[in-house]
Design a protein around this nucleic acid. Structure first.
Lengths: 233, 233
DNA sequence: GTCAAGAAGATTGTCGACAATCGACAGAAC
DNA sequence: GTTCTGTCGATTGTCGACAATCTTCTTGAC
C-alpha cells in the first residue's frame, strides 16, 4: 500500500509532454522580446509550419497563453498578441496591490525565515544586473521577488493569480524599456519591503509593499501615457 | 469619421462558435449537479462518443474548464474533476475577501447607482428562491450578487479573477448542500452589504462585505470539515 | 503469499485532411 | 460615386487515424 518514492532519479526526467510547453516558451519569448508586437496575429498554420509540427500543439499553446493574458482569441479569427492600454496596466497594478499586500501580511504572520533568504538573493541579483546593465533580466528578478512573496504566503491561490498576471506585467515593463534612470533604483525600492518583513512587522510590510507597487504603478502608467502620445502624435 | 452605432439591431446576434461553449456548459452542469464527482476521470473519447462529436472540441472544453478550476489535468493522464479540500476552500475564500473588498470600495467610490438596482434584484431573487425551496438556484443568485460587485467596480480585472474562482466556489457550496438551516438567512446576510453601498459608505461596505464573506468562510469550512470526517470515518 | 516483469487494453498526444467561416477584392446596380 | 453582391484565398473549426504512453491484468520467480 506504500508508495515507492522514485528510487534514485539518476537521469533527469526529460519532459515528454514538453512539446506544448516548449511552444509556449517560444511564443512567450517572442512576445516578451518584442519580436511579436501587440496586435500581431498568430496564425496556427504559420507557426506550426515554422516549427515543423502540427497545428494541434500550437493551438493548445495559444490557449495556455490566452489564460496567462499574453494573447487574446476571437472566434473564427484566431489569436492576437494582447494590446496593452494604460487602463489595463492601471487595473493590473491595482489587482497586484490587492493580492500582494494580503500575501505579505500572511507571510509575516507565518514564518518568513525561509522567504527572507530568497528575497535577499533577488535584491542582490537586481544590483548585479544593474551593474551588468541587463534591464530585461532585472525585470525577471523583480518579478521573482514579488512571486516569492505570494509563494510563501501560505495561500497557493495567491500564486495562481500572480502567475496569471505576471506575464502581462512583464510585457508592460518590457514595452516601456526601463523604469528608472538609475538602474540601481529598482533594487533600492525593494529594501523597505524586505526590512519590514525581516522586522516581522506585518502592517509595516503591507504599507511598504503598497507604497512600492503604488510607486511603480504611477511611474509605469506615466511613461506609458507619454509613449502612447508620442506614438499617435 | 463617425462610427455608425449599429442602426437598429433587429436580430439578436446568435453565437456561433457555440460547440465548445456548449460542451463546457454540459460538463459544468454535470459537475455542479453532482453527476460527476471530485476525482472522477473525464475521458475525452468517452465524452466525445456520448455527445456524438470528435475529441477536439471536448479537449478544448476541458482546457477551458481547467482554467476555471473545475477540472485538473495531468500530463498523459487526462482530466479529472477537481478534488475539493478544506484548505483549498479556505484559500479560496481568503482570496475572495481580498478581491471583493477592494472591488466594493472602488464601487462605492464611483457611481453605485446602477449597481444597486442589480444587487437589490439579486437579494429579492434569493428570497423568492428560498420560498420556492430551490437551493441550487439560490446559490447562483448569490454568486451573481458578488459578481455584480466586481463587475461594477470599474476594474475589469476583478471580474476576470472572480470568474476564474466562481465555479470552484459554486462547486464547494454544491457539495455542502445547504449553508443555513433557514434558507432565508442567505438573503438577509446580504442586506448589510447592500445598505452600506446604498449609504455610499466605502469603509462600511468593505467591513460589511468582509464580515459577510468571512462568516460564509467559517460556516462552509466547518460544514466541510464535518462532512470529511463522516465520509472517511 | 508477495513482489517483479511482461503483455494486453485503454487513453492521451500528435498528425494530416476536409468543411465552415472570415476578410478582401472585383463587379453590378442604382 | 456609392452601395450591395458574389467570388476567391486564407484561416479556423472539426474530424478520423496513428503513435506514444499509461493502466491493468496476467504470468512467473522466490
Amino acid at each position: 500500500m506504500s508508495m515507492d518514492p522514485a528510487p534514485d532519479p539518476i537521469f533527469a526526467r526529460l519532459d515528454r509532454a514538453g512539446l506544448v510547453q516548449h511552444v509556449v516558451r517560444l511564443i512567450t519569448d517572442a512576445i516578451l522580446q518584442g519580436r511579436l508586437k501587440p496586435g500581431d496575429r498568430l496564425t496556427e498554420s504559420g507557426i506550426a509550419r515554422e516549427l515543423g509540427l502540427s497545428r494541434a500543439p500550437v493551438r493548445e499553446a495559444a490557449r495556455l497563453l490566452e489564460n496567462r493574458g499574453l494573447v487574446v482569441s476571437q472566434p473564427n479569427r484566431g489569436f492576437f498578441v494582447r494590446e496593452v492600454t494604460v487602463e489595463a496596466i492601471d487595473s493590473l497594478y491595482e489587482l497586484r496591490i490587492c493580492i500582494e499586500c494580503a500575501a505579505v501580511e500572511r507571510l509575516v504572520a507565518g514564518d518568513p525565515a525561509q522567504a527572507l533568504i530568497g528575497l535577499r538573493e533577488r535584491i542582490d541579483e537586481m544590483r548585479d544586473l544593474a551593474e551588468a546593465d541587463d534591464p530585461l533580466s532585472q525585470i525577471e528578478a523583480d518579478m521573482a521577488f514579488h512571486r516569492l512573496i505570494c509563494l510563501h504566503s501560505g495561500n497557493e491561490r495567491f500564486v495562481t493569480v500572480f502567475d496569471q498576471i505576471a506575464d502581462e506585467t512583464q510585457l508592460s515593463l518590457m514595452l516601456i524599456g526601463r523604469l528608472y534612470d538609475d538602474p540601481m533604483r529598482m533594487a533600492e525600492t525593494h529594501e523597505p519591503v524586505f526590512d519590514a518583513i525581516a522586522a516581522r512587522d506585518a502592517q509595516g510590510a503591507r504599507a511598504a509593499l503598497e507604497y512600492h507597487i503604488g510607486t511603480a504603478r504611477r511611474v509605469v502608467t506615466d511613461i506609458f501615457r507619454k509613449l502612447k502620445e508620442d506614438g499617435s502624435a
